[in-house]
Design a protein around this nucleic acid. Sequence first.
RNA 1: GUCCCCAUCGUCCAGAGGCCCAGGACGUGGCCCUUUCAAGGCCAAAACACGGGUUCGAAUCCCGUUGGGGACGCCA
Length: 508
Amino acid sequence: MGVDSATHRVASRAGDPLTSALMAPRVRFAPSPTGYLHVGGARTALFNWLFARRHGGVFVLRIEDTDVERSSAEMVDGILAGLRWLGLNWDEGPQVGGPFGPYFQSERLDRHQAMAARLVAGGSAYYCYCTPDELKGKREAAGGTSIYDRTCLRLTTDEMARRERDRMPRAMRFKVPSGEVRFDDLVHGSIEVDAVTIEDFVIVRSDGHPTYQLSVVSDDVEMKITHVVRGDDHISNTPKQILLYRALGAPIPQFAHVPLILGPDKKRLSKRHGATSVMEYAQQGYLPEAMVNFLALLGWSPGSGNQELFTRDELARVFALEGISGGNAVFGPEKLDWFNQQYIMRLASDELAKRIQPSFEAAGLWDVSLLGDRRRWFFSVLDLLKPRAKRIGDFAAQARYFLTDRIEYDHAAVEKHVRAAGMGQHLLALDAAFGELSAFDAASLEAALRAVADLRGIKAAALIHATRVAVTGTSVSPGLFEVLVLVGCDRVHARLQAALRLIAPAPG
RNA sequence: GUCCCCAUCGUCCAGAGGCCCAGGACGUGGCCCUUUCAAGGCCAAAACACGGGUUCGAAUCCCGUUGGGGACGCCA
């Protein structure tokens, strides 16, 4: 049945020059390695990845490293690391190769130049001998911005010959034809621009290197990209690029321009707003699945339903470019925190253990037995801590008193709860009662504690608080009885005794 | 300045002419649970920027205003 309808669709569209829409889509993420992978780029990459996965297409990673001054291998590694952390695997690109390589733009210069040659040969481009200084002067004279006045397009053959003879440096400009340029953006709908507002942009610099406009189009054409999903800031470049596609006689891909991510002050997200690199979030203890979920819902919606939690695979099943909203989105860290907490709570203990291990090691709390002999016990500790953790790093701090007997007392808490009138005697009685217990489980412990409190005429809450401080050193912890069970009979006894010594009057 | 994009609760979204005196989530406030902190449950406050049209009827369509954002490089 699926085969029939598919063949039918293909057949009915046969002869349509835009058959690319029916082929498996090919999308690309093309970062320029002049910085780390920031959240905006990560979201664009995610949308591309999701779209490719949704339609059984190909996700290409291409590094646009032609700005030699600002690009570095270190940045490339950082971007790859960020994508891997998010789980956005690429089908073609650095380290995996592919049939349309190379995937570093700097290695494709000859192709760009060949394309430029085609453009001049076809009369779509011309040489320009104006110097940057001259252009700057004209621009300033015009008060800020102006469109190139086509001085060099009007050069006579003699004038041109003279410049060539003098070996004047020359750039290549695209000859923008007049008329309207219109395209259907998948998120914005129809966008139309009058070509008179577009200047004859440079496509090859005087040093022979292609500019961005030429190289993206050249690479996208040769890599057979069918859908260009990129930031909103490229929307004004799109008409220029469409003109290039036309001049080249190449099929024009579909465009989807995704709105920018703003900081809380509604300004373009930048370092001022705090962490912008995805790896910074990794270091701060955010889970990649939380980041993916958060980023996916930032500016995109599946349309109906009230679901908020989506796994990467669920997203890949329902993602559609049409669900991207047209307006900019503010990056709200509170919601990221919520997602993170939700994912931490749902993480299986063995998986969680892997992720917290580095921070435990750093805190000197790790021991191989936690995944060996003490595995079950350790996982129970994690289960208690899970709903109380916002970041991965929270576990080390909160698990301290389970893993070490060097208790750090919160002095204010000791004063308030343990050094209360008569509390020493109460705790002594409690310790004795615990010692009588045949089963050291939560229910028995609670019954025993309440009985002691009752007998001594104090509130159970007061005894609970004092015991918590005595055993954990702090006034905040998971439910006391669960904590006591996991700390264990012997250590609870030892800590009660230690607490009594702590509040005992100095010998003398 | 020119061109382009955008405009629903504080924030992220739903809403594609009557289902909307606008729905969900985060955050905020309150209550419940309770032994502290979380988690969880319940409740609440909270928005269609403004002005004109079109229509029997507009958050939804059109125009304008205002506001925000982006682009105007021999950067990508």
